[in-house]
């Protein structure tokens, strides 16, 4: 549990700032404490032109970081992030390849339909499943227009080189991409973005849309980006550029 000092300080600042704005939150001001802040809105931008169809750096990294298993059963495999190939129906535009993951919508339909509030949206805009509360009704999977969710059909064990800091699967609950919330809370980037920048082509960036200085907020406000199924009015946090 080594936390890098700088990020702790940075986050501490955010916590302090939010504490000033929201004095209702009780603070047992331990220095290492972090808390989701209503000031941020985490988001991702994918530059489709840079994404290569042979590259699976993001999906591999996600499986490694989050212990996402494969069951050798395409019908039931769990996918937090997947590479999707797009072919123009009229055959005019060149084919593209891009990652699809949970869009962390501002108005997530999965949260609306969840009977126990197990699916919820954190103050900083990350949509999560509280696996302690999920009863496995799967209504959220019906409601999600991005097919971002998977039901865990089989229990799993921690693989040899698995990540012991992240829980493994408990059968019967629904799960999905968490934006690597455990890393984001430590001031790091999600594993897929990290891998894309290190081993991939640097197509993905991650950051706080509400922070005017962040690269993502500049780019999202300057370039024409798209979100998936904008017609549904969900306002996703995953933006695509160059489609």
């Amino acid at each position: 549990m080594n936390m890098d000092r700088r990020s702790v300080l940075g986050l501490g600042g955010v916590v302090a700032a939010s504490a000033m704005i929201a004095p209702g939150i009780h603070l047992i001001a331990a220095p290492e404490r972090t808390e989701a802040s209503g000031q941020s809105r985490w988001a991702m931008l994918v530059d489709v032109n840079k994404c290569d169809s042979d590259c699976t750096a993001c999906t591999t990294a996600c499986r490694q970081e989050n212990n996402v298993p494969t069951f050798d059963d395409p019908q039931r495999d769990i996918h937090w992030i997947r590479k999707v190939e797009l072919k123009d129906k009229k055959g005019k535009r060149p084919s593209v390849s891009l990652p699809v993951l949970c869009n962390h919508c501002e108005h997530p339909p999965c949260v609306d339909v969840c009977p126990t509030e197990a699916s919820f949206i954190r103050k900083d805009g990350i949509v999560l499943v509280d696996k302690h509360r999920c009863i496995g009704c799967r209504y959220c999977m019906i409601a999600c227009p991005y097919k971002a969710r998977s039901l865990v059909y089989h229990a799993t064990e921690l693989s040899e080189n698995g990540n012991a800091d992240v829980p493994i699967r408990g059968k019967g609950v629904v799960e999905k991409c968490t934006f690597c919330v455990h890393l984001v809370d430590q001031g790091k980037k999600p594993a897929c973005v990290d891998a894309c920048q290190k081993d991939g082509n640097g197509a993905m960036i991650f950051g706080d849309l509400n922070d005017g200085q962040s690269e993502i907020s500049k780019r999202v406000h300057e370039i024409r980006t798209q979100t998936m199924r904008a017609d549904l009015g969900l306002n996703p946090a995953v933006h695509y550029q160059g489609l």
């Binding site: 549990m1 331990a30 972090t34 808390e35 919820f120 954190r122 999560l128 809370d185």
Partner: peptide, 10 residues
């Protein structure tokens, strides 16, 4: 921790 992101590693 899960719902509010309050993480106290210790």
């Amino acid at each position: 921790t899960v719902r509010e992101g309050v993480r106290v590693p210790a």
